[in-house]
Computed example of a mutant assay.
Amino acid sequence: MRRQDAPRVRITQRQVAELAGVSQSTVSLVVNGKADARSRIPRATRERVLRVLREAEYVADPAARRLAGGMNRLVGVFTYEPAFPAASRDFYAALLTGIEHQAEQLGYDLLMFTSAPVTHGRRQLFHPANRLRLADGCLLLGLEMDDADLERLATSGLPFVAVGRRETPGVPYVAADYAGATAELVGQAWDLGHRRFAMIHRDSSGESVQDRLRGLIDELSRRDRGALGTAVIEAASTTGLEKEWRRVRRAGASVVFVESPEHALVVLDLARRDGVCVPDELSLVTLGDPARATPVELTRIVPPRTRLGAEALSLLGQILDPQVHLSTDELRVTLPCAIAPGATLAGPADERPAT
């Protein structure tokens, strides 16, 4: 009996072949899942090799298996931003929950690609330390993704799916319909009587940021032929929103759309400080969903983050399945967002009947 503290010896394919009485190439075919009818390996031989593998507790080297064209049932998750610090935890938690649940359902193990260092808040997908090829495929998460990275990955042969809409040709993705949900909320505000709109959005070129902005501008243009002159205000962080708040007030907006829930909470505080009552004097809509309870129930978009993670892994599983052939449209999936009515959107004060 092997002592508990004795070092574990890794058995090789050659030793498995000797124990099973077969060639090493036969063991390789079985380990890599290629011992099918085309390989002409008898079922009894395959079962004998599998029995020896189980008894020897053989674990295939994942890198060697990938080089041999085999599958490890291992999916990588690459996040451009750190996933676990407090600043990003709320964004990633629901996505990773959906990915983990779907991986369990499909029988995949997950590998977080964290060896690439974070530089200026972002990881490099093709950093020399990144071991993408250990996995059968990869999920990409991040607000902004480098177009050159995506183009290179699309031609690399490594299957992948991006979470979030990407404009780069040939990139499979699962995204939330932020433009449609934003347009729906603009329509609700318009129907309540609002005609003076402002928007505070992130200073970012990310597609999800641009989709929200497009949803607002396009819906206002549809409603009023673009004659409103909506104030569009960029904000780089949750600090220093004083300037943005002043611009909203100077614009005379009766409703402000704030992309980030964190920014929305800062705007609420600034409004209270200045004695501006929300929503009686100024309505506020946020185009995201805070992960934690807020002092006021915000009128907001609720993106399906958990489902986004699950559907992204499901799509990657289909791409990895040689029996499944997907059309171009099937490689790009858009999921609807829900709308939470909240308590921060009401008709403008000058449109309400006198009491």
Rank of each mutant, 00 (worst) to 15 (best):
S208Q: 10
S115K: 11
T299D: 08
V174I: 09
V163C: 15
A343S: 15
R122P: 01
P42F: 07
L345M: 06
D191S: 14
K34M: 09
L284A: 08
P348M: 07
P322N: 11
E330I: 01
D61N: 15
A60Q: 11
I41G: 07
S28K: 05
E242P: 05
L125I: 10
R272E: 14
E242W: 07
M71R: 15
E219V: 05
S28C: 06
S156A: 12
P169R: 09
S25H: 12
T79P: 08
H325L: 15
D203W: 10
E259Q: 15
M145P: 03
A346C: 03
A154C: 04
A340P: 00
R14Y: 12
A310Q: 02
R247V: 10
P85K: 13
D109A: 15
V22K: 07
M199E: 04
H201P: 03
A271P: 04
Y92T: 10
P336D: 14
S205V: 12
E167S: 14
A135Y: 04
T168K: 05
E244D: 03
R65E: 09
L139R: 05
L50D: 04
Y108I: 06
G226T: 02
S88I: 05
S25I: 10
G226E: 06
D203M: 11
A83Q: 13
S88D: 10
Q102G: 06
I200N: 07
G288H: 06
L95F: 10
R46W: 07
T239E: 15
A94Y: 01
R305I: 00
A20V: 04
F126W: 08
V333D: 12
L153P: 00
D146V: 05
T182I: 01
L139T: 00
T286M: 01
A44E: 15
L287C: 12
A264T: 03
H194P: 00
A343P: 01
R166N: 14
C138F: 02
V49R: 04
R273N: 09
V30T: 07
A231N: 02
V266H: 00
T12G: 09
F257R: 01
Y108M: 04
D191P: 00
V266M: 09
G206L: 05
P42N: 05
A37T: 08
T119W: 13
G164M: 03
V267R: 03
V209L: 10
R166K: 11
D224A: 14
A154K: 03
L158E: 13
T294A: 13
A175G: 09
P348N: 04
R48P: 02
R247M: 11
T306H: 08
R222E: 11
D329N: 09
